[in-house]
Design a protein around this nucleic acid. Structure first.
Length: 509
RNA sequence: CGGAGUGUAGCGCAGUCUGGUAGCGCACCUGGUUUGGGACCAGGGGGUCGAAGGUUCGAGUCCUUUCACUCCGACCA
């Protein structure tokens, strides 16, 4: 591609709403364009190229693991969501609308219902299982507060996969396979990441793991062990229980739990005074949709006692109708690892992937069953696996940038090689540039030739902003027989004889 | 949903207090000079001032209503 023909609106100025490096450089580098704010973006040619490259890596690894790609209708009849019970539960993030015949639809924020519907209509026998289907398609979530560019847009590209099994053992085998596959994907994309234990959130299910790209700007706090590879989202992290005895000081935190149809309950949470209540664990412990803070209550309808106090507290003296024990304590930095006893630390991560063991949570209400060897109908056991593909672009830049711009990794870069002709009026420079450009193209290297009339400085700034891994600069020193080979990561410049540059490029690419 | 703020050219902003025919930088177009770190000179195009209503001889500016967006918090791939 010739730069002079490429639509890359790079800018000097940073957009005023951008605070994150990935947001700033994706806009400034002309990869994406904001659509009237509010978390919607157009992908310009460069952004689309990167998106396609990332998508290709995801697809390749999934296909190798035996998954099959499909594409589901983005617009989904509301009736499917009513069947699963999520039409009520999902809340305002779900964009609902009507067509001209007044039929109700939703714009898919995730596609469990749609995929289960597809499978229940086509799969009837245990002989057809297991099955792992996925798509890489648009999702829409009407986020309360979209921000950070591609990190949290309302419309985004997501890979969502769903597997169907005859038993939970087989589902767990697939779950492990997906963990391995995801690790390969993130490794190929050149990301530093950590697989952590996670809370299952609104999608539901039991075991779940998140793939966290490590970056200081990440929105999630994760707990990692210094001694072993234990890692967990702070919402799900567990530490080695601290020993408690009758002298341990106790506190009770009162919260209001919100349930379907506007029902509320007051819950008392009892835990050691020096440990903070972990909200997500606390919410899960009582099966509520949400917890809100409230005034202290004289009586509560339910008392949840932290497991560390199990042998010491009965809870009866507090007058609660029901008493449960659960892990509701949060993990602090410096706590001991439950696995190896090492020291736990906090770090920040970007949630780029999430895999769940779903079980029969969707297959049962939606009647997705198969006939087993005895001809008996059984609900399929499911797993679900997601990757935020457009978010990955942001994650790659968060992890790979400097104060000049993007530094794309090999498998994500919009081009393999960037050739800069310093002054196109210099015939020798122009001729060498064209020669290299043609030779590389013939070889199948995706090369960008900066043949614009601009001055050297402007071209160099654009190169640094766009962030292709390698560049050749053909400039002033050509009169001494030299060109420059640049590695974007670190901006390392090597002077090469113009006779040898073609050989070097041929070897490297 | 709570708190704060902003809507004026493609982008970034001034002008609003004190009403009087729309301005700056970047970008864009034309011509010329320039070519190793976002060039310079000269000329040029581009706006129902977020929307609706009101006050006034006259509204970007004052009043009322409304919409949108941004930032800070509680939720999420």
């Amino acid at each position: 591609m010739r730069f002079s023909r490429l639509l890359v609106p790079t800018t000097k100025e940073t957009p005023n709403d951008a605070t994150l490096a990935s947001h700033i450089y994706l806009i400034r580098g002309g990869f994406i364009q904001s659509v009237g704010g509010s978390g919607l973006y157009n992908f310009l040619p460069l952004g689309k190229k990167v998106l396609d490259k990332v998508r290709a890596v995801v697809k390749e690894e999934l296909d190798k693991a035996g998954c099959q790609e499909v594409s589901l209708s983005f617009v989904t009849p509301s009736s499917l969501w009513e069947e699963s019970g999520r039409y009520e539960k999902y809340g305002k993030e779900l964009l609902r609308f009507k067509d001209r015949k007044n039929n109700e639809f939703v714009l898919g924020p995730t596609h469990e219902e749609m995929m289960v519907n597809l499978v229940r209509q086509t799969v009837k026998s245990y002989k057809q299982l297991p099955l792992n289907l996925y798509q890489i398609n648009l999702k829409f979530r009407d986020e309360i507060r979209p921000r950070f560019g591609l990190m949290r847009g309302r419309e985004f590209l997501m890979k969502d996969g769903y597997s169907f099994h005859t038993s939970s053992e087989d589902m767990k085998r697939e779950f492990d396979l997906m963990e391995k596959t995801y690790k390969k994907i993130f490794t190929r994309l050149g990301l530093e990441f950590r697989v952590v234990e996670a809370d299952s959130g609104a999608i539901g299910g039991s075991g779940s793991k998140e793939f966290m790209v490590l970056a200081d700007s990440g929105e999630d706090t994760i707990v990692v062990c210094e001694g072993c590879d234990y890692g967990a989202n702070i919402e799900a992290a567990v530490a080695k229980p601290k020993s408690c005895d009758t002298d341990t000081e106790i506190k009770v935190v009162t919260m209001k739990a919100l349930y379907d149809e506007g029902k509320t309950k007051y819950i008392g949470y009892m835990l050691p005074a020096d440990i903070e209540l972990q909200d997500v664990k606390a919410c899960n412990a009582v099966g509520a949709n949400d917890l809100v803070e409230c005034e202290e209550q004289e009586t509560v309808s339910m008392m949840v006692i932290d497991e560390t106090l199990k042998s010491l507290q009965s809870g009866n003296e507090l007058g609660a109708q029901e008493v449960y024990y659960a892990d509701i304590s949060s993990v602090s930095e410096g706590d001991s690892c439950a696995v190896c006893g090492g020291i736990l630390r906090y770090t920040k991560g970007i949630e780029a992937g999430h895999i769940f063991q779903l079980g029969t949570q969707y297959s049962e209400p939606l009647g997705c069953t198969f006939l087993d060897e005895n001809g008996k109908a059984q609900p399929m056991v499911m797993g679900t696996y997601g990757i935020g593909v457009s978010r990955l672009l942001a994650a790659i830049i968060e992890q790979n940038h400097d104060d000049k711009g993007c530094i794309w990794t090999k498998e994500s870069a919009p081009f393999d090689l960037h050739i800069i002709i310093s002054n196109i009026k210099d015939e020798a420079q122009l001729a060498l540039g064209e020669t290299l450009y043609e030779a590389m193209q013939k070889k199948g290297v995706d090369v960008l030739l900066d043949d614009r009339k601009d001055r050297f400085g402007a071209k160099m700034k654009d190169y640094e902003l766009v962030g292709v891994p390698h560049a050749v600069v053909i400039g002033k020193k050509l009169s001494d027989g030299l060109v420059e080979f640049i590695t974007r990561d670190g901006l390392i410049k090597e002077e090469i004889s113009f006779n040898e540059i073609l050989t070097l490029l041929t070897e490297r690419f």
